[in-house]
Structures are given as C-alpha cells and as structure tokens.
Simulated assay, not measured.
Amino acid sequence: MVSPQDIEKASYSALEWTEFFDEKKSIEIEEGDIFNVYVKGTTGPLFYLIHGGGYSGLTWACFAEIITKKLECQIVAPDLRGHGDTLTKDESDLSSERQIKDIQLVYQKLFADRSKPPPMILIGHSMGGALAIRACEAKLLPNVVALAVIDVVEGSAMSSLKMMHHFLKSRPQQFRSVEESIRWCVKSGTTRNLRAARISMPAQIRRVDKNDEKKGYQWRITLTRTEPFWIGWFNDLSQKFLNCTPAKILILANVDRLDKDLTIGSMQGKFQTEILDKVGHAVHEDSPEKVADIFVALVNRYKVIFNKML
C-alpha cells in the first residue's frame, strides 16, 4: 500500500526536460563559455526565450509545450550566464552589455548554418525582458518581428529594488531535498502552477555537496551578488522599449505596474498590453496557456509577413 507520504513526495517530484524539449545543446560561444540551450522544433517562426534572474531556460517549459501544440514553430531557451547548466569563465559579470552579447552569440552559433534566418519573436521575463529590450534596440538579432516582455516595467522595477534584499533574505537559503524546494515554490506563491514548479524549480538549485545528496541543496546563483547590475538592467528601459521598431507586447500581472511613459505609450497604441489575472510575477509559468494564446493570435495576425520570411 502506498503511504500518504509517498503520494505527497511523488506529487512534488521533479520533471525531466525531455518531457518538454527535443534537445539540450551545449554551445561554446567563446573559449571556456559553454551555454546550455533547450531547443524544440526546426520549422516555422522562432521563439527566442530569455529567462529572468535566478531562473533557467526551463522556466519556459510549460509555455513551450503548449505553444508547439498550437503552432508550427521553433523554440530556443538558453540558460543565461551564471544560471542553470551554463558554465562560463566569469559567472560574476551579469551586466546588460555582457549578457546581450551572450544572447547574440548563442543565436549566431545555433543558426550559423542557416542560409535564411527564421522570423523571430523575442520574449523576455523580468531581467530577461530588460535584456530582450536592450538586444532588440541594439539590433543584435536578425528578423525580430515582435518583441514581448513579461512583468518588467522600469518604474516598478526601479522602485522595487529597495525591497529586493528583504525578499531575497526571506527565502530559504537551503532545502533538504528537491521535493522540499518544489513544495516551497508552490506554497510560497513563487509559482502557482505545480507542473511548472516541478520542471522550473530544480534547475534553480544545486547540491551543497555534489557527492552527497543528504547535505541538501542551495540556490544555483546568489542573487544578492548581482546587485551592482540591477540599475543597469532597468534604467531607461521604458524609453528603450518604446524605441524598438518591431511589434511590441507587454504582458503584466497587474495594471498598476505600468509607469508614466508606458501608460502614455499604451494610450497612444505604441504597443499591445495584456493584463492576466490570478498570476504572480512568473506569469508564463502560472498561466502558460493564456500566454501561449497571446502569441498564437500574434502569429495569425502577422501570418502573411511570417510566410514571406520563411
């Protein structure tokens, strides 16, 4: 007979990346800098997905699972520098300049043998949204038809930096097991979708001692050490977003997150705003179906353009 404890443990067990992606590639972008990249699909428009601080490419797993059932498309979701299974010579440099260069080089290595780059939908969450905006404005990536950012706005991001230390210190610094970390992730509301937590959370932690599981797990990246880069990620972000020429979508968990510049821009129709309910900061994890539907509608709306570029 299965005990209640075994049932609970199974419900919070980790899921494998193979359930969501076709490949897990190791891409050496520069000597000693090897990026881990999750890939799915080989045809159709490309969704290039940039995760937020502390997450990994697996934060997009549920979204990738759903969008590829609704559309013929390609998914590229890298682990950024200092995150997930990516290994680099300098994991401490998380400046915008270094990271958008990483994002560019990962793309170039993956598509070096393609004579015709696919049309791209560039999506970033939180810190990844800031990086996506900066990469797009600098025109580091080809054929960007649409830029989408999830729950990152300059005004609210800059004001929340003051509370970031308190938030980070309030999190558990260690977990006894992967299951415990997933349980915390869901019960704390960090992710409200259990399936997303089961694939995303394990990639955010590492064994304290890689040879001894009993010593528990700690965070893969110490986010407090990234503080020198926080202002650089978000400063002047609203204007840079408005300056980007592709079609733009801002996906938020709360309409109150809009700052003055974006409120005016939204009223002027300079970008599409989507406000989702019953979600937290990780909007794409909490409601992957609704987020996927936003992009299905986008691709259908721009179908003629995409077809000409494919």
Rank of each mutant, 00 (worst) to 15 (best):
19 E>T: 05
248 K>D: 06
162 K>A: 00
139 K>D: 09
300 N>G: 14
107 Y>N: 12
85 D>S: 02
58 L>D: 01
193 N>Q: 04
79 D>C: 12
20 F>W: 00
153 V>E: 11
61 A>L: 02
188 S>F: 03
30 E>I: 11
118 P>Y: 00
167 F>D: 12
241 F>P: 10
310 L>R: 11
112 A>F: 12
234 F>P: 08
93 D>T: 06
10 A>K: 03
269 G>Y: 08
78 P>L: 02
250 L>I: 07
148 A>N: 05
217 Y>G: 03
122 L>G: 10
259 D>R: 05
218 Q>W: 03
200 S>P: 04
63 F>V: 07
210 K>F: 13
205 I>C: 12
136 C>V: 12
198 R>G: 00
274 E>A: 11
135 A>M: 12
278 K>M: 05
250 L>G: 02
214 K>Y: 11
310 L>C: 15
201 M>I: 06
40 K>S: 10
203 A>T: 07
302 Y>K: 10
294 I>H: 09
266 S>M: 06
72 E>T: 14
232 G>Q: 14
135 A>W: 04
54 G>P: 04
140 L>M: 09
70 K>E: 13
12 Y>I: 10
223 L>M: 15
13 S>Y: 01
223 L>F: 08
13 S>C: 13
272 Q>I: 03
266 S>L: 06
2 V>E: 00
286 D>F: 08
237 L>M: 15
150 I>Y: 03
93 D>S: 09
48 Y>C: 15
205 I>G: 09
28 E>N: 07
223 L>N: 15
229 F>Q: 08
68 T>Y: 02
87 L>H: 07
66 I>V: 13
181 S>G: 14
89 K>N: 14
126 S>V: 07
225 R>F: 12
127 M>Y: 00
287 S>M: 06
275 I>P: 05
187 K>M: 07
170 S>Y: 03
289 E>C: 12
41 G>R: 08
158 M>L: 05
129 G>D: 02
184 W>V: 06
2 V>P: 04
304 V>L: 11
179 E>S: 04
235 N>H: 14
269 G>V: 12
134 R>I: 00
287 S>V: 03
1 M>N: 00
291 V>N: 05
71 L>W: 02
155 G>K: 11
264 I>K: 13
116 K>V: 13
201 M>W: 10
224 T>F: 10
204 Q>W: 03
163 M>D: 04
196 A>P: 11
73 C>T: 15
262 L>Q: 08
236 D>N: 11
53 G>R: 07
158 M>K: 15
257 R>F: 07
261 D>V: 10
303 K>F: 01
124 G>F: 06
82 G>N: 06
37 V>I: 12
13 S>E: 12
81 R>E: 04
309 M>W: 07
46 L>D: 00
245 T>R: 01
30 E>Q: 11
38 Y>E: 10
187 K>H: 02
231 I>P: 02
245 T>D: 13
258 L>N: 08
